[in-house]
């Protein structure tokens, strides 16, 4: 077992699955946010792994940089929204946020 591409990709896949499961099941909005960060990180692992195994090493890493950027923005805005909701509802159980309904 060497540091081969499928292995790294497998690590990413497992982490991705964990993130998805968390995002779908957590009731606390901040936990959902954290899980989404997990998903994004797993993607980053994949990107960096690909870059290691291609001639153009910059390509995958640049993508990772942009993912980080988006993740940072997402975290900032997402938390701001959660804070707003917390102020109004005193809690952030997303089961109680169901305005997107008929």
């Amino acid at each position: 077992m060497t540091l081969s591409l499928p292995v790294v990709l497998g690590v990413g896949a497992i982490m991705f699955g964990l993130g998805v499961y968390g995002a779908l099941t957590q009731t606390n909005a901040i936990r959902v946010l954290m899980c989404i960060e997990l998903v994004l990180n797993s993607v980053n692992i994949n990107l960096v792994a690909f870059s290691r195994f291609t001639a153009d090493q910059a390509l995958g890493q640049i993508f990772a940089v942009f993912v980080m950027t988006v993740a940072a923005a997402e975290a900032a805005v997402g938390l701001a929204i959660i804070l707003m909701i917390a102020r109004r509802k005193t809690q952030i159980d997303i089961d109680q946020i169901n305005l997107l309904k008929w």
Binding site: L5, P6, G12, A13, V20, R52
Partner: peptide, 27 residues
Amino acid sequence: WPLLAAVGLAAAMVIVVSRGQWPASPH
């Protein structure tokens, strides 16, 4: 269903990875 979705996604990715032709050695 969430468990199914998560496992399914991971499994699908593993399947895809295992079937792919990958460069053996890193640059």
